[in-house]
């Protein structure tokens, strides 16, 4: 259970948002909306603890995320604009390093499996430097297949992905929600999940012709 109350965030000398409150329970997806620069990325980074909030509090299962520290970060996976993969490592190596740092090392065959499911068959052993943007994104997203984190925070996960990969990612997100997980994401795509499970949050003003 993620609870946010009275959250405010200041970047530079500009107040991005203030007095933001919401909560998210297992089996729910929070879809963040907002125009460019409305603070979606900042909010996500604040929620996973990368940015210290200016005001307000973020609680995870009733405790502040800053006092939980590692007990909170263990439950969270964050995939931001940057993929966080090393250009000189292969997909398999990248995935294995990532998961080892996240505290649940996987075997090489598990990594091959995950990458194959992500549609990277035949590319598992290439240095990421030669992969396309979409393929790099797939390597980063392969973490979602093997991790055990409860809360996924995904910043524009669908960018650079082709139609097939978007569909596949949607299905992963759906099954994570159905298994009682939580997802917070920003995207300009429609998320194909039953409406009861989706919460919407609007940052900044509403753009014409947008949800």
């Amino acid at each position: 259970m993620l609870e946010v109350s009275g959250l405010a965030c200041v970047r530079g000398d500009r107040k991005l948002f203030s007095d933001l409150s919401f909560s998210l329970a297992g089996g729910e997806l929070l879809h963040l909306h907002g125009h460019n620069g409305s603070g979606k990325t900042t909010l996500m980074r604040t929620l996973c603890g990368l940015i210290k909030e200016s005001e307000g509090e973020i609680h995870w299962n009733g405790e502040s995320i800053h006092s939980l520290d590692e007990d909170f970060t263990r439950d969270v996976v964050y995939i931001g604009h940057k993929n966080g993969i090393k250009d000189d490592l292969t997909g398999v190596e990248n995935l294995r390093v990532c998961t080892a740092l996240d505290g649940y090392p996987i075997t090489e065959s598990q990594a091959w499996d995950a990458l194959e499911k992500m549609g990277l068959r035949g590319h598992e052993d290439l240095p990421s430097r030669v992969l396309s943007q979409g393929q790099k994104r797939r390597v980063a997203l392969a973490r979602l297949l093997v991790n055990r984190a409860k809360l996924w925070i995904l910043d524009e996960p669908f960018t650079a992905l082709d139609v097939a990969a978007v569909d596949f990612l949607q299905s992963i997100i759906r099954s994570h929600i159905e298994a009682g997980g939580m997802v917070i994401l920003t995207t300009h795509q429609e998320v194909k999940i039953t409406k009861e499970q989706v919460k919407e949050l609007q940052l900044g003003w509403k753009e014409a012709g947008h949800v």
């Binding site: 993929n83 993969i85 740092l101 996240d102």
Partner: peptide, 15 residues
């Protein structure tokens, strides 16, 4: 820092 691996380090459940 540039490729985002640092972010993941900061979020890793390790000291």
């Amino acid at each position: 820092y540039e490729d985002g691996a640092l972010e993941q380090m900061l979020l890793a459940p390790q000291p």
